[in-house]
């Protein structure tokens, strides 16, 4: 009998597998396919204060072992999420969910998180300071250590639940941002958001994505994600959540060896809607194969 449980900021997860924000909606649609209570938790669709349609289409491009998206934080806004999405989720999910929050000003993050903090179903905040697809006034909080810290400390002051800073890899030194977020009060760091990428259609000679560029994800980016998790684990004391191309139980274990306490699965859900369930089902046998009896004991084991 193997033990897959991990502790994420004081909340025990049955396993470290977490569908990543933007690939799992608000969960209830996946609940039509399988019992989503098998998940460690999941990070819901990036929510902003106001509702957003997002970017023009086409928003999707295919790459070798991956994809580019330029959705642009389409969501019903925090009030729609609290009034419609979370009650639907509550009918099918008995665990704490991770609230993924995006914003364009520090005040927006504060207002959005303050409203969500009152929702019992929410266990953690994952603060998205790393979406490559929205640039309000040229501000990209996640690429500047001081701006990143400002958002995290502001949110930390107004919420009671653990705050996770979700970082972008599109920086020179991700550990600098991670350390700034930890010092600002982040209870955990999650990484990596997508890599800025693009494709060009040879027939039209134009970018495939309407917004020209978008976020590159999928198995192709896993080595980059793994490297970033490994680096950040060395520099911070708070837990690290690893993500980027994870598609199998082996990938989960590899990410944990690099330093991840929990592991998010993103693009894989879009190719195989049962990906997270399959990974969770495969975990025990994969652990046995690599002589792991207690998953939490391997965190950072590669260091």
């Amino acid at each position: 009998m193997v033990n897959t449980k991990v502790d994420l900021c004081g909340i025990e997860l049955d396993n470290p597998v977490i569908p990543a924000s933007g690939t799992f909606g608000f969960g209830y649609e996946f609940a039509e396919l399988y019992d989503i209570n098998c998940l460690g938790t999941f990070s819901f669709k990036g929510t902003t204060l106001e509702s957003r349609f997002g970017n023009p289409t086409p928003r999707i491009a295919e790459c070798t072992s991956g994809m580019i998206n330029s959705v642009g934080l389409q969501n019903p806004g925090v009030h729609g999420v609290i009034e419609h999405e979370l009650p639907e989720l509550k009918k099918v999910f008995g665990k704490k969910v991770m609230a993924n929050v995006g914003g364009f000003t520090v005040d927006e993050y504060i207002e959005c998180c303050t409203l969500l903090d009152k929702v019992d179903l929410i266990g953690w905040f994952e603060i998205n300071i790393s979406c490559p697809n929205v640039h309000a006034g040229g501000v990209n909080f996640g690429t500047d250590a001081k701006n990143a810290a400002d958002v995290i400390s502001a949110v930390r002051k107004v919420v009671s639940k653990p705050v996770i800073a979700k970082l972008t890899p599109n920086v020179t030194d991700i550990t600098e941002i991670a350390v700034a977020c930890e010092e600002a009060g982040a209870d955990a760091i999650s990484l990596i958001n997508t890599l800025l990428g693009m494709r060009i259609d040879l027939k039209t000679r134009k970018p495939v994505i309407a917004n020209k560029m978008g976020g590159f994800s999928g198995p192709a980016i896993m080595p980059v994600a793994l490297r970033a998790v490994y680096q950040v684990y060395d520099k911070v004391k708070v837990p690290v959540i690893g993500m980027g191309g994870v598609s199998s139980a082996k990938d989960v274990i590899e990410m944990m060896l690099a330093g991840a306490t929990a592991v998010e699965v993103g693009a894989a859900n879009l190719v195989n809607p049962f990906a997270c369930r399959d990974i969770i089902n495969d975990l025990p046998a994969t652990m046995e194969k690599y002589n792991i009896s207690n998953l939490s004991e391997i965190i950072g084991g590669a260091h």
């Binding site: 933007g22 690939t23 799992f24 909606g25 649609e29 996946f30 669709k45 349609f53 997002g54 289409t57 086409p58 928003r59 999707i60 491009a61 994809m67 998206n69 959705v71 389409q74 495939v208 859900n269 879009l270 190719v271 809607p273």
Partner: peptide, 27 residues
């Protein structure tokens, strides 16, 4: 028709605006 990511409503890749609100072409 629209370029789709997942095809089952998860990724919001194929959204469009309608008079009845935002809709996903796939779902």
């Amino acid at each position: 028709e629209e370029r789709m990511g997942c095809g089952f409503g998860a990724c919001m890749g194929c959204s469009c605006k309608t008079k009845y609100g935002n809709k996903r072409i796939c779902k």
